[in-house]
Design a protein around this nucleic acid. Sequence first.
DNA 1: TCACGTTCTTGATCTGCATCAAGACTCTCG
DNA 2: CGAGAGTCTTGATGCAGATCAAGAACGTGA
Lengths: 236, 236
Amino acid sequence: MHIGFSESDYPDIRALPLFAEMAPDHFQSLMRGAYVQTFPPHIELITEGDPCDFLHIIMSGSVDLFASWNGHETCMATVRPISTFILAATIKDAQYLMSARTLEKSRIVLLPSQDVRAIFDVDHHFARAIVNELAICYRSVVKVQKDLKLRTSLERLANYLLRLQARSGGGMKFELSFEKRRLASYLGMTPENLSRAFKGLRPYGVTVDGNTISIGDIEDLKRFARPSPLIDDHST
Amino acid sequence: MHIGFSESDYPDIRALPLFAEMAPDHFQSLMRGAYVQTFPPHIELITEGDPCDFLHIIMSGSVDLFASWNGHETCMATVRPISTFILAATIKDAQYLMSARTLEKSRIVLLPSQDVRAIFDVDHHFARAIVNELAICYRSVVKVQKDLKLRTSLERLANYLLRLQARSGGGMKFELSFEKRRLASYLGMTPENLSRAFKGLRPYGVTVDGNTISIGDIEDLKRFARPSPLIDDHST
DNA sequence: TCACGTTCTTGATCTGCATCAAGACTCTCG
DNA sequence: CGAGAGTCTTGATGCAGATCAAGAACGTGA
């Protein structure tokens, strides 16, 4: 575990839309109060229900956001660098609604929530950037809600693969970036059912070899999946 | 259909947290560009996928936000006075992710999105109020996601009834405020299954007479439902 | 390289819930 | 008030997906 924060990270953080227009002295002040830590895999960073002491920025690695209730657990989202997570709880000084766990060795910058809120109170550019960030987050979760309610698990997998393919450069062969059981949980199904669902997409040209996915005929898969930007485009 | 806007509505709108701290001349300017319309029941106000021309404020009545995909439709939320809906799309100048339909005769104030965005750009208090609103909206949808993924439909109904009871003043007898088929859709189930689920809650003291719900033993129901503020408290 | 632990796949079975159908009930309008 | 349309309930059946179990496959560490 490393404590300390080097100025070499500043440009990457500054380039995030959330911080890009913030007044320079506000940004400096925020960075002065920041910590950086490197965590090994499978470490719980925050726990659902706890008060929100820090805004987190993932600089490298990846993080699983998950939730629990009555002995059940479900994957809510996966966070990749470079991005923040749990912004709303920070701004509202509220409890975390999700826990976070590292999926692999990860470097995380921790900004004290009090500092973030203080700057939010006085920096209009920052407040506006938070609006944009929260609007995207909100719309993204609405899309997940629609996915869950309007599609079967097979349809959700098909559309997930199309999104992942697009994100992986658009080639006919690409890699799943985390364990299948986590993907199953994210899509709201069991690992057993995920295995079966992959087979269910075989007639649409999808083949699976370990973590490698191949799509034989993208248009055939799209005809089945019926992707909609109102559900599948998480950038707007 | 009425066009025209009377100053008697101003205090109610001004009292909304979204507008309460806005500079007075900005508020006046916004109100000058506003329209008010009264719609009968079952009228589609906005359509999923359309560009977002107005921020809507419901002054009376109620509105169903719903989404469609591949011939399926689902209820996403119900909006009651006095509140805004579809704020994120307004601010982002993006497409609506949901459609909206009046459930009963409703009076709606329409604020041109351009006007809203222009004031957002220059009024720090307004920007901060939008942050608070979006953070609540975001956290609310995360809670819905958790409800859908972590609970069975029976558990979702039980917790919904506990929330509704609390909202209805806490008495042992209270009214459903909209049609059962809509409630079923909101909870992610069919109307048939909702009927059955009400019967399934009979052993926990729940009885149904038309739209009237009675809870015989609230603690017994809570022992079954296991409410969690991290899922069921939509105010934080 | 091998052993062990974990993840994934596959099969069998079960369960929660949807679909279909029809009757009962409620509400609205002339 | 009565008719008709729409909603709700109930029963039967089907289906999507979970659960349980066990073997296969994979990854990691000594």
